[in-house]
Computed example of a mutant assay.
Amino acid sequence: MHRHAYPDIESLSQGFADFAATTLKNTLTRKPQATLVVPGGSTPRHYLPALAKCQLPWDRITITLSDERWVDVNNEQSNEQLVKKYLMAHLPPNTSFIGLKTQHENPFDAVDTIHQRLDQLPSLSLTVLGLGEDGHIASLFPGINPDLPSNHHCVAVAPPIAPSLRVSLSLKILAESEHIALVVTGKNKRLLLDRLNGHSDSGIPLTWLLQRASSPITVFETNTE
Score class of each variant (00 low, 15 high):
residue 3 R to C: 02
residue 4 H to Q: 11
residue 5 A to D: 02
residue 19 F to Q: 08
residue 20 A to D: 00
residue 23 T to S: 13
residue 25 K to Q: 11
residue 28 L to H: 10
residue 28 L to Y: 09
residue 30 R to H: 13
residue 34 A to R: 15
residue 37 V to K: 01
residue 42 S to A: 10
residue 46 H to S: 13
residue 48 L to C: 10
residue 57 P to H: 06
residue 59 D to C: 04
residue 60 R to I: 07
residue 61 I to N: 05
residue 62 T to P: 02
residue 63 I to R: 01
residue 66 S to G: 15
residue 68 E to T: 04
residue 70 W to K: 10
residue 72 D to W: 07
residue 72 D to I: 06
residue 74 N to H: 15
residue 76 E to V: 12
residue 78 S to K: 15
residue 79 N to L: 11
residue 80 E to L: 08
residue 85 K to Y: 00
residue 86 Y to K: 02
residue 92 P to D: 05
residue 93 P to D: 14
residue 95 T to M: 09
residue 97 F to L: 13
residue 100 L to F: 05
residue 101 K to P: 12
residue 102 T to E: 10
residue 104 H to L: 00
residue 106 N to F: 02
residue 110 A to N: 10
residue 111 V to I: 15
residue 117 R to Y: 14
residue 117 R to L: 14
residue 121 L to V: 12
residue 132 G to D: 12
residue 135 G to H: 02
residue 136 H to A: 08
residue 139 S to P: 03
residue 143 G to M: 04
residue 144 I to E: 05
residue 149 P to S: 03
residue 150 S to Q: 09
residue 153 H to M: 01
residue 156 A to F: 02
residue 157 V to Y: 05
residue 157 V to A: 08
residue 158 A to H: 11
residue 159 P to D: 09
residue 161 I to K: 15
residue 162 A to V: 05
residue 163 P to Q: 14
residue 163 P to M: 12
residue 166 R to W: 05
residue 166 R to M: 09
residue 166 R to S: 04
residue 175 A to M: 11
residue 175 A to Y: 12
residue 176 E to F: 06
residue 177 S to H: 13
residue 178 E to N: 06
residue 179 H to T: 14
residue 190 R to Q: 09
residue 190 R to H: 10
residue 192 L to F: 07
residue 194 D to Q: 15
residue 195 R to D: 14
residue 197 N to A: 14
residue 198 G to V: 02
residue 202 S to N: 10
residue 206 L to C: 05
residue 212 R to G: 01
residue 213 A to W: 10
residue 216 P to D: 12
residue 222 T to A: 06
residue 222 T to L: 02
residue 224 T to G: 00
